[in-house]
Structure formats: C-alpha cells, structure tokens
C-alpha cells in the first residue's frame, strides 16, 4: 500500500495484490488511519489488485460511510476483470463511485461547484 498526498485533504492510495482476509489484515488499520480521522477525500488505485473478498468490500464500505459523515468522499478506480465483476455483483457503485481512470476518480471526489 502506498499513499500520496495530492493536495489539501486529498489523498491517493495505491493497493496491490489480494484483498482477502490476510491482505486486508495487513493494510486496514493504515488505510483507515490515512483517511478517516482527517476526513480526507481519497482516490484508490486498484489496477494492481487481483481479488477482493468480503473483508475488502467491508473495508471500502466502512471507510466510505465514515468519510461521508465527515463530508469527505472515496472513489475507486482501475479495477479490472474479477475485481470489477465482484463490485458489479454487489452493486458497490450505489455507495462508492467506481471509476475507470484516475481523472474520473478525481472528478468524483472533487467538491461540488457552488
């Protein structure tokens, strides 16, 4: 897991490998810590993720809901093949924007124009 600050309250997280029980155990605390307490908007690059199990889904959903309380947003992008199929099967896009590209994800978390 790598984290890059893209600006004030905007973070990009890149995940790789498998988000199964063992994979989520390794990153969940850091993933949440980088986003939720500060209420950071976040985009998550999943182009290097091969598989997402229910615990991975739980991490994304829980984080998105916690960010929502803090008026911040989470968007995922770059998901491929089996990962995208899982997201579609659970209709994850009803809660979290699932974007094709980083630019789309940035747009999804950008503050609404006043």
């Amino acid at each position: 897991m790598t984290v890059a600050n893209l600006g004030e309250h905007l973070v990009k997280i890149t995940l790789v490998g498998r988000l199964d029980s063992a994979g989520v155990d390794k990153i969940e605390t850091r993933f949440v810590a980088h986003l939720v307490p500060a209420g950071n908007n976040a985009i998550v690059d999943l182009s290097g993720v091969e598989f997402v199990a229910s615990l991975g889904l739980r991490m994304f959903v829980s984080t998105a809901r916690n960010l929502s309380v803090r008026k911040a947003k989470l968007a995922l992008f770059g998901a491929q093949g089996p990962v995208l199929q899982i997201f579609e099967a659970v209709a994850l896009s009803k809660i979290i924007p699932i974007c094709a590209t980083e630019a789309d994800a940035l747009q999804a978390v950008a503050p609404a124009a006043k």
């Binding site: 229910s54 889904l57 959903v61 809901r65 579609e88 099967a89 659970v90 209709a91 994850l92 009803k94």
Partner: peptide
C-alpha cells in the same frame, strides 16, 4: 439465479 444488489447492512434504504 441471481442479480446485482447491495449486501445486507452496507447502506440503509436499499
């Protein structure tokens, strides 16, 4: 026999 839908407990009002 299935369809895409949100998990139970993930978001109210589904």
């Amino acid at each position: 026999l299935g369809m895409p839908a949100m998990m139970i407990g993930a978001m109210p009002g589904m």
